[in-house]
Write a protein that binds this DNA or RNA. Structure first.
Lengths: 220, 220
DNA sequence: CGAATAGTGTCTGTAAGACAGTATCTG
DNA sequence: CAGATACTGTCTTACAGACACTATTCG
């Protein structure tokens, strides 16, 4: 039984005015010390219950963000990906509203557009690419994009999120029909967005779908 | 950096008259020696290029099957899943026609209906459950089911595979329209299935889709 | 009232399913 | 020719998108 380096890495994704962005931090230790990379770290068998728990711990330690939407992405492995030796990275992706990253007040956490990434160590570029394509494909037929918005949001906001992720505009009537059909939103009474126009109804994701996704039979 | 046990496990799935089945082997070593389990084994950092390579090696060694459709499923990990200690299993699933398993002539490889599984060691029940639901959900919108049939097959055969996997009958006209639209099959000229009825045209999966799946925009 | 965005009613075109017909094999 | 299964043409139904209309806010 050969020794294998076991780590977790987390692609923390969010949506800003710049589009889809991923959180990177400068590495504190060699190899690649000082280079921007995904938050990650060794699995600590003494304290971590499982890899998901390790991912949650790493994300909280390095970015100050607790309890985001967090899902296993894929596992990256091999002799070539890390100069220290044969390694395994169990990669997760996390989705948060951009406000959550601001509230954490960690200046070392920097957001980078997923379309303009700096050179990345290990295979972190592949991990981010896989995370982005997973997010985009799951957005076509699930409630996943809700997790990029704050707790409470309007249907026009949610539609814009879906449109940015899928890279195309969506018919408003169809979108609203689908949201009704999915039955995943609770209206929040009496509260509206303001502006020089008709305010929009606010909604909240139903509690049942905060961890488990709601799926659509035939996509948007 | 705590020591972590690194393994791969493979859920080898096939379709027989009994429905969807998974290959199990009696374990040769402790723990759970003699108990039916998924083919699996330690990652060998000295020889395996990566985890996929390890899965391919394990499958070939234990079942005699080379070069099936093989895809990473998920990674199962934690302190509780293996009595030897904190462990990681990078799980893969493989699809083969039932004939491939017969041709390998390994009597120790036993097929079990995924609906009537014996008690399984570790979290192998979860791994199989995840593999089956992944196969079923991907079958709705991809060419994946082709890999459960021999190299050459007819459209009625393929339709039956889709129907068994999705658990519902499919409209024949719609199915054929979708297959045409997917444009993933090459007709094999001059060869037909025999029987006391009109023979069916034979097809072969286009080479481009033997490793990479063809995806459907809107599912079947 | 005009501008702006939210939300809805309705028509139309496209795609999926139902059904029935033709085609081709065996015995 | 009967029985069986393969394949296809066509009608109907269901759903997605286009469009237009109403609703509600600000200034």
């Amino acid at each position: 039984m050969d020794p294998v380096i076991c780590t977790v890495d987390v692609a923390l994704l969010t949506l800003t005015a710049e589009g889809l962005e991923v959180a990177l931090l400068k590495r504190e230790h060699a190899p690649f010390k000082g280079v921007a990379a995904l938050p990650g770290g060794y699995i600590q068998a003494r304290t971590d219950v499982d890899a998901r728990d390790a991912a949650r711990r790493v994300l909280l330690d390095k970015t100050g963000i607790a309890a985001p939407y967090l899902e296993q992405l894929a596992t990256f492995s091999g002799a070539a990906r890390d100069p220290r030796g044969w390694s395994v990275s169990i990669a997760y992706y996390a989705l948060v509203p951009a406000t959550t990253i601001a509230q954490a007040e960690r200046d070392e956490v920097r957001l980078h557009s997923v379309d303009r990434l700096p050179p990345l160590p290990f295979d972190h570029g592949d991990i981010i690419g896989t995370a982005v394509s997973r997010l985009r494909s799951k957005s076509q037929y699930s409630s996943l994009p809700c997790h990029l918005l704050a707790d409470v949001f309007t249907l026009p906001q949610l539609q814009r999120v879906y449109e940015v992720l899928m890279g195309e505009s969506i018919n408003k009537v169809s979108f609203r029909r689908k949201m009704t059909e999915m039955d995943m939103l609770d209206p929040v009474d009496g509260q509206f967005e303001s502006g020089a126009h008709r305010p929009a109804q606010l909604y909240r994701l139903k509690p049942a779908f905060r961890e488990q996704l709601q799926l659509l039979e035939r996509g948007l």
